Every structure is written in structure tokens, then in C-alpha cells.
Simulated assay, not measured.
Amino acid sequence: MDIPFNPSAGPTLGVEWELELVDLKTRELTSRAVEILGDITPEGAAEHPRAKHELLQSCIEVITGICDSVEEATSQLAATVAEVQAAADPYGIGLMCSGTHPTSDFREQDISPKERYADLIENMQYLARRMAIFGVHVHVGVTDKNKVIPIVNALTQYVPHFLAFSASSPFWIGEDTGMASYRSKIFESLPTAGLPYQLDSWAEFELYMETLVETKSIRTIREVWWDIRPHPNFGTIELRICDGLPSLEEIGAVTALSQCLVTLLDREIDRGYQLPKPRQWLVRENKWRAARFGMDAEIVVDNIRTLRPVRESLLGLVEELMPTAKRLGCVDELGSIETILDRGASYQRQRARLQETGKMSDVVDLLLGEMRDGLK
């Protein structure tokens, strides 16, 4: 199978932010995406250019166009969120984003009226019905398809950094799961989701996708939902590992981290270096540790079994990436990671609010406020 790759001009950006629609009276998810998107879609258009349906009618995904900078991406997201919120106001609906809603039951959610979602439910059954989960996806442009697989392989060593920082799903249907990111464990239950396979070349990627299609495991390569995956049509590498992020500040931080990392790895290839290919067991173990313990995880940082706190490793990575951030113009966004961690990752802030007040509704209010007003 020949899979054409549409190369990007440089490390361009695209961001997708999955928003929860919350009834402000009950604090529960509410299925109003059809009405809200209908109200804001331009007359005569099939859909809004930057606000889309997702699997559940209690979710609207806002997206950017092709952006050159983190600032441009976050500005576009902010404008679209404001438009969606204005349309949601008459329905008494607020917007928020977290990996899972603290209390809402997935069994009570309506599926969006699109054929591909009906097919997903039919094929995956209960696994797909549980997908009341919300994430953030960052696309970073790559100039040459032959760079894509080496960069994807190398990025897997940073899965725990992204997951621990973004972890925002400690609760599931009103119970504390004991996890920092329960969403990541739900999502990887799908047969083509989770960590990417370690491949050696674009040709091997094409062969693998051809095998999946010919054996009727998938119909298109879009049905492979790896945590980090090539996106041939966009000419990007898409980082899908993150839980839903409640605030625009956190979106900016993760976008900057993604752009800087891909850019650095791309330049290393240009300099003639062979990028590292972490061992699969190590990547899997580190993802589990980040999902379970979040920013308190100790991760394995080399093949001789050295342990290092993920917080320390992440802050060291930020320092290492600062020269790249200066070239890309995202120093402030990358540097905000330390400030955000001082406040606590979202799963920590949510647990702290519950401990403080004893009310899950206050956790929902915290998340609604962080999207509305930012982190304080």
C-alpha cells in the first residue's frame, strides 16, 4: 500500500481540544452538541470550520487551522471556545475539559448522529460505549516522510512526561479510581489504540497498514488511534497521549512542548544523528507509572534501569528545549510548565478540591472555572 505523505513546510501546528458540555444546574454532561453546532454553523455549510462533533453528543471538539506558532494556535482556540460558549449560554450549558467527567455515567450519553460513530459502536461494542473520555491532540509538521517513523519512535520515551503533566481523570462515575489518568487506560482498550508499534521505516508503516486493511481489521488508516501517530494527509506527527486539559495555559504549554520536541528531533536527523529507539517494555512501564502516579511517578530513563522522578525529568527537558523554544517563539508557553506544576496537575487540583469541600459538584465547578477564567 502506497501511503502518500503531504510534507509540511516546517514545524507547523494544529491543535484539537475536546470540550465537555455541562448542564450548569445538575453539573452533569448534557447531549446538546447537535443544537449548539447547528446554531453556529454558517448557513449553507455542512459543518462549522473549527468546531466539530465527536463520538458523544456531550462533546464538541474545537480545532485550529494550520498555525506557525503556539500563540497563533491558542488564539484561534480561544476565539472558537468563546463562540461555542456564547451559543451554549442560552441552553444553560458550560464548557470544561478533563480526561473524564468526575460523576457522569457513560451509559447515559447519547451517540452523535454520524455513520462512522454508529459503525464504531457496532464494531467495538461495550469498549466504544465506555468512551466518555476527553483529550487534547497536537499535530506538528514534518518536512519528509522518512523522518516520521524515527521521530515517532524517539517520542515514545516522552510519553510519561506528557501524560503525567496532563493527567486529569482521577474520577469515574463519582468514584476515585486511584489513577492520575484513568482516561488513558480506557482508551487503550481499543484494539488499535495505545502505544505505537516500534517500526523501522515508512515502508514498514505502509506494510503494517496494508495488512490491517486487507485483513479487515480497519477500513482506513484513520482508525489507528495510537498515542503518537503519523498523519499522512496533514503531513504531521500527531501526539494524542494527553488527557483533556482544563485551561488555555496548559494547552499552550503542551503545544510548545510538542513543537519543540519534534523540531529538536527533526534537526538531529538533519545533523546525521540516529534517534534513540526506546525498548517497548520500558515505554509501556513508564506509561503505566505516569497513568497511575502522575507527577509522583518515578520513570525508567535508560536501558540500565535508572529511575528518575518524572517531575525532575520533565523540568530538565524544558531546560534542554529552551534554545529551540527561543527559535520558535514559545519561550513563555514552554516555561509556564514549571509554574503550572507548582499549582499541581489537574488530577491533583481536582482531588484537593474534593478533600477541601467533600462535594463532587465543586470539582466540576473548579473545572468550569479554569476554562472560563484560566488558572489562578
Rank of each mutant, 00 (worst) to 15 (best):
I337Q: 14
N153R: 09
S75N: 13
I337N: 15
V22K: 02
V224Q: 07
M322E: 07
A154P: 00
T64H: 04
T103S: 05
S247V: 03
A345V: 09
M96N: 03
T220G: 09
R284E: 08
D270P: 05
T255A: 06
Q85D: 11
D110W: 05
M124Q: 09
R32V: 15
R271T: 11
A345M: 08
V62M: 05
R308E: 13
V22T: 13
E319I: 11
E83I: 11
I66Q: 08
Y158H: 12
G335T: 02
R222N: 14
D144C: 03
C260L: 10
E319Y: 10
T357C: 00
L248K: 04
S168D: 03
A203K: 02
D227G: 06
I173Q: 02
E54V: 03
L199I: 07
V262Q: 02
P150G: 03
P196F: 09
E35Q: 11
R222K: 15
M322R: 08
K277M: 01
L29A: 06
G294A: 01
A256R: 10
V364R: 01
S258C: 10
F234Y: 01
K376V: 15
I304G: 09
L245N: 11
Y208R: 11
P232G: 01
V70S: 04
E298A: 14
S98Y: 13
A345R: 08
D2R: 09
G244V: 05
Q109V: 10
M360V: 15
V148C: 00
I133F: 01
L367I: 09
G194N: 07
P309F: 10
D68L: 12
V310N: 12
C330T: 00
A132K: 05
R107G: 07
D68Q: 10
I173N: 01
R27K: 14
E312P: 01
P113D: 13
R308P: 12
G141S: 10
A154I: 13
S189C: 06
D39L: 04
K287P: 09
A79G: 09
R183H: 07
T143D: 11
V331F: 08
A82Q: 15
S31Q: 11
N286Y: 05
P90L: 05
D296R: 13
G344S: 04
L207R: 12
E210S: 15
I63L: 03
F293Y: 15
S217R: 11
T192I: 07
A86W: 06
Q355P: 01
A167D: 14
G65W: 03
I337K: 10
H139P: 11
M295D: 02
P42R: 13
G369M: 07
D144V: 01
Y182N: 01
L257R: 04
A291K: 07
G14Q: 12
I221L: 00
A291Y: 02
V254G: 09
A73K: 07
V70W: 11
D373A: 03
H137M: 01
N303R: 06
Q198V: 08
